[in-house]
């Protein structure tokens, strides 16, 4: 089913639906490569409901990461609209987007992207530096987030002193510390061995089940995608179930 032809695509079974948290409408993105225009996707529509755990699969270059970046307000579409929790992300300027991201988006990267000069606790604390929380409150939030990911005994370790799986768990703690509206994962298990990857997927499942977090996971890995409630596929800019 072509995304341009489709009606609004919903990820999960009607019985499980909460309110619509994310609305993507008629989204289009192109790149210029020299004189050539590369169409990443065209007319993408998607609804994500509150509390959903959705996987988005697709080959490299299919546009899934671009979709994720636009949803996070890190990239701008050429056309269309993304509404998250009632706010039109595509209408915001860069300043508004930065402030919005700090409270609404938790981003998990493939390569963890921790700051090597900061300890695990300091890395997790980063999004909270933008809030009005005091030092003690920030510390409490950080400790809670690290406790959720099972790393409360590694708070003062630097990234190089942690395994890949542990680093990714710190990355997840950083993504959840500000209690964001939605968690976006860009291949979060892509750089991990199967055991560590499995631990991360279990943790994401727990965040969804226990803490009711809405999660959109971009992955190549079918095994990782199967752990989500629903799987969407994107190929050559076309979104399908």
């Amino acid at each position: 089913m072509s995304s341009t032809e489709s009606a609004t695509m919903s990820a999960s079974a009607p019985a499980a639906k909460g309110r619509v948290l994310v609305q993507i409408r008629d989204l289009a993105k192109n790149y210029r490569r020299g004189a050539e225009t590369v169409h990443v996707f065209e007319g993408v529509n998607l609804d994500i409901h509150e509390g959903e755990y959705l996987a988005l699969m697709g080959p490299s270059g299919s546009g899934k990461s671009t979709l994720l970046n636009i949803l996070a307000g890190l990239d701008k579409p050429d056309r269309g609209k993304v509404v998250v929790d009632g706010k039109d992300v595509t209408a915001m300027n860069s300043r508004q987007l930065a402030a919005w991201r700090s409270t609404h988006i938790g981003f998990i990267f493939q390569f963890y992207n921790l700051l090597p000069v900061l300890t695990a606790a300091q890395n997790v604390e980063l999004p909270l530096l933008l809030t009005n929380l005091g030092k003690k409150q920030r510390r409490e939030h950080v400790m809670h987030a690290l406790d959720v990911v099972g790393l409360s005994d590694r708070t003062e370790h630097f990234p190089k002193q942690l395994s890949g799986g542990q680093q990714q768990r710190v990355g997840i703690a950083r993504a959840i510390v500000s209690d964001p509206t939605i968690i976006l994962g860009d291949e979060p298990t892509g750089d991990l061995d199967s055991v560590s990857g499995d631990e991360i997927l279990t943790l994401l499942e727990r965040l969804n089940r226990e803490f009711k977090k809405t999660i959109l996971l971009v992955t190549h890995d079918a095994h990782a995608a199967e752990r989500a409630q629903a799987i969407m596929r994107m190929d050559k800019g076309v979104l399908s179930r």
């Binding site: 930065a98 991201r101 981003f107």
Partner: peptide
Amino acid sequence: AVLKTVGFGD
């Protein structure tokens, strides 16, 4: 890029 992603403004 990470700092910007977590909300650090320009």
